[in-house]
Write a protein that binds this DNA or RNA. Sequence first.
DNA 1: CGTGTGTTTGACCAGATGGTCAAATATGAG
DNA 2: CTCATATTTGACCATCTGGTCAAACACACG
Lengths: 200, 200
Amino acid sequence: MAKSDTRIQKKNQAAILGAGLEVFSQFGFRGSTLDQVAEAAGMSKPNLLYYFKSKEGIYTALLSQLLNDWLEPLQALDAEGDPIEQIIAYARRKLAMSQHYPRESRLFANEIIQGAPRIGDVLRGELKDLVDEKVAVIRRWQAAGRIADVSPYHLIFTIWSLTQHYADFDVQVRAILPDEDPFEGAALHLDRTLQAILTP
Amino acid sequence: MAKSDTRIQKKNQAAILGAGLEVFSQFGFRGSTLDQVAEAAGMSKPNLLYYFKSKEGIYTALLSQLLNDWLEPLQALDAEGDPIEQIIAYARRKLAMSQHYPRESRLFANEIIQGAPRIGDVLRGELKDLVDEKVAVIRRWQAAGRIADVSPYHLIFTIWSLTQHYADFDVQVRAILPDEDPFEGAALHLDRTLQAILTP
DNA sequence: CGTGTGTTTGACCAGATGGTCAAATATGAG
DNA sequence: CTCATATTTGACCATCTGGTCAAACACACG
């Protein structure tokens, strides 16, 4: 019985999710108010709640909408490709996401630092399964002697932490490097680091 | 004219700061309430405010009290020591802090992700100066050919991100590695990674 | 143009939250 | 023990916040 969304509904839902991303990524869930989101979306608070049941509804809609985009780069890691090339390509995709979608990165960071109360199940389910699968791929590469024998789990943590650092701690990075674009140096450094770790 | 604190004052101030650390590190500043802090400190809300002027007062007292501990490991980096040894020792100290003081790490992470509204000046001042000083040390080591020629700034970011990741994203790390202590593998991985990057 | 449906909002409410205050209670120096 | 001072708290207040509701408005379709 679900009617397909009208033009206006699509436009407003998109505006609300955009505003929610802006606000929630900066202040976290509890630190944000509906008035802030409404203001950022350019509409009244009751109108927000005409499109989404509650504050929580906006937030969880955002989280689940973004989760797929967030996992996609790792899914693209190809067991048939060249090992070092594949891993570096993955790291570059992740870094590019930090550069172009820092708000999404900070949204997840806020959520996870505060104990992941709303996506803990996804972390322990979908995410863990995906990581386990790719860890198996890396282990096969290692067994064949094609890359060095580092812990695949910690290798993945290395890529996550290094790339997300530039988005999540952007203020700190720019406090240290006020006169340059951190992402240029980061890309080069990331390449060299992974080369150094992975070369057998 | 400042009277030295009595026994009771010392005890209660410590209790409040401990409670504040517990609560603020989990929910961030805006996400925490004075009632939560009072409850965790085992006293009434008005009594909290007898010792600290405001919620903000507790928070900023915490931040500035912890900042020194946070910068100390980097200060201890010794220009006269063996380069690779010194850098790895720094990374290990940082990792140990993430392991033993994860709440402090998350407190800073929350603050910085949300734009560091209260410690931006410290980042651009004290922290930047300290980092610049140590970067100069690393550059001298590199000029002497004693370590590889990586960007010193990004090397430091690497150490920060890798070590703090295990504290700040603890929930995610443990979701992926439910059956082991992540810090054991992390220490080994960190050593190997830095060896690989730094060996000329 | 008129009518039914979808959209928007001003006014409002209940509960939470940061902070105040006067009164009660504990403490310790003489 | 006594009293001045330090400590503690119940009751309270103003503001903020998530959410509701009825009324107003816009719009498409006959």
